[in-house]
Amino acid sequence: MSDKTNSTTRSGFDRRMFLAGAAGSAVVPLTARAAGPAPNAAAAPDPSLPVDVTLRVNGDSRLLTIDARTTVLDALREHIGLTGSKKGCDHGQCGACTVLIDDRRAISCLTLALAAEGRDITTVEGLAKGDKLHPMQQAFIEQDAFQCGYCTPGQIMSAIACVKEGHANSEADIREYMSGNICRCAAYPNIVAAVKQAAPEILKG
């Protein structure tokens, strides 16, 4: 279903935006593949046919042909093979699927892949530079900030954003601004310690 394209598939995205502009309308129906490249609003393409979408994940562009209903989370996991982001509830109630979209933490299970086209998605797989772990990853290890590890990718993505948002100035702040990520093993105090540990290094840049 998926294949990786590193450079040029952005043109598909641009083309659609261009067509929309050229038609004098800002309505952009993303076309079903079988309906051909030029959308015709009157023809009402079968919405159950797969659509093309290009996602930029951890700096790489990926062209996918997927069901329009696919969320960013399912696109990552089932179509791109990046399974670090986890499904814990599929309804925005647990935070396990947290990724960064344009550098803001977001719930990938409630974000349509189509709506994320043209935006930068960062997942837990995109944090380490080779063998060098991101300071938050390192802090999670040192503070034993997980047990089963299932919520951990979401916690780490959320924690990085928490620091960058300026919400890591006190333990109370960290607790509140890390409350969108449920940890059933309840590693919470260690998560707070990890955020505290990593914050200065992250803010230093």
Partner: peptide
């Protein structure tokens, strides 16, 4: 530290 720590913090 946990044997599986790196795997768990990297999504691997």
């Amino acid at each position: 530290p946990r044997y599986d720590a790196v795997a768990k913090v990297t999504g691997m």
